Simulated assay, not measured.
Amino acid sequence: MRPALDRDAELAPNPFGRTGFPLWGGEAVILTTDPDPSAVEAAGGIARAQSAAMDEACSRFRPDSELARVNAQAGQPVVVGPLFAEVVAAALRAAAATEGDVDPTCGAGLEAVGYDRDIELLRDNGVRITMRERVPAPGWRSVEWDPGTRTLRTVPGCHLDFGAVAKALCADRAAAAAARALGCGVLVSLGGDIAIAGPAPDDGWQVKIADDHRAAADVPGPVISVRGGGLATSSTTTRRWQSTDGTAVHHILDPRTGAPAEAPWRTVSVTAATCVDANTASTAALVRGHGALAWLGRQGLPARLVSHDGRVLTLGGWPPDPAPGGTA
């Protein structure tokens, strides 16, 4: 059975090297154009090392992470490590590019809606979360950042969260590192955030897109060919849990209100030059709601949006879905 990638996107069959491991409530999948087992093992080891380093730097659920240290010292200047600095820079670029739709200062807001523990614990059917008062984000412009000295200062009470950027950056870093080390084409998918580096297969990497996170691995779905860059799918249906009053809650917040975004889309997939750029755009599209179509159009990014009733819209050169009964 082909593993689902965070149950949003799934890799189609291919003749190349493949390995994977559970990661962050989803699955990491690594493909190489070199099928030699030693190359596959090396690529998997690189992806594991990159994800372990990112987890140590940026996990909100580890009391020993660098992020936990930074959040505990909100209001004070803190010198951070090189990887954390790279994530901060990427997060601030994402915030600027989306006019604050993707904002790294949403940590306290996520905690208030119940996302204060690993997603697997929240998905447990017996768990019901008491919602606290909504906490709007202080805003990315409140972050003082000196890249030269790697010194960061947030406002008192601010909790950073890099969920929309760190996983995608990890995929970009892992794919690039593996391609450099092995001299072959590499695809890295971390929970559905896909990065590609090195020479692609002649027909490109064949990626199956699923718009329903509950879809079984063998359910038909559109397949696209990706030759480079990144592909990301953001969804309001995957990282979802229940509050004590029975309300369904998801993890993508509107930073301005601190409430889960009320998007007309259940899933947005985007391709871009990097996985970070793709993830930034797909997340921003859910926050922007109806305004996403015009915004994505201005960015010139290929995108596929699925409404809650299953209607599919494609733009920017994304191939249309096959007609019902047709070949994906």
Rank of each mutant, 00 (worst) to 15 (best):
A95Q: 08
G45Y: 11
T151S: 11
G229Q: 06
L296M: 00
S59Y: 04
R173I: 04
P3W: 05
T149K: 14
A174N: 01
A303N: 10
A303M: 05
P199I: 07
A200D: 03
D193N: 09
V276E: 00
V287E: 01
V70L: 12
A181K: 13
D34I: 01
A323M: 12
A181Q: 08
P201I: 10
N125H: 14
R62C: 07
H213F: 10
Q299T: 12
G326I: 03
A9H: 13
G75C: 06
V226N: 02
V186R: 08
A94G: 03
R2T: 11
P136Q: 10
W205M: 07
I252R: 07
T32L: 12
V226S: 05
V219W: 10
A263C: 14
A272W: 08
D277Y: 02
P156N: 06
P104A: 02
A232N: 01
P22S: 11
D8R: 15
A178P: 07
T154A: 11
A259M: 06
K167C: 07
A164Q: 10
R123H: 15
G291D: 13
D212K: 14
W145E: 07
R153Q: 12
V80W: 02
E262A: 15
P324N: 08
A181Y: 01
L187E: 05
E262Q: 14
G300E: 01
A52S: 10
A285L: 05
A12M: 10
M131S: 12
A328T: 08
A217K: 14
V143P: 06
V249P: 00
A112R: 15
G17L: 13
E120A: 14
G326L: 05
A72L: 02
I196P: 04
T149V: 06
R141V: 09
S142F: 07
D101G: 05
D309V: 04
A197F: 09
L231A: 07
A176W: 15
Q242C: 13
V306N: 12
T233M: 00
A273T: 10
A47S: 07
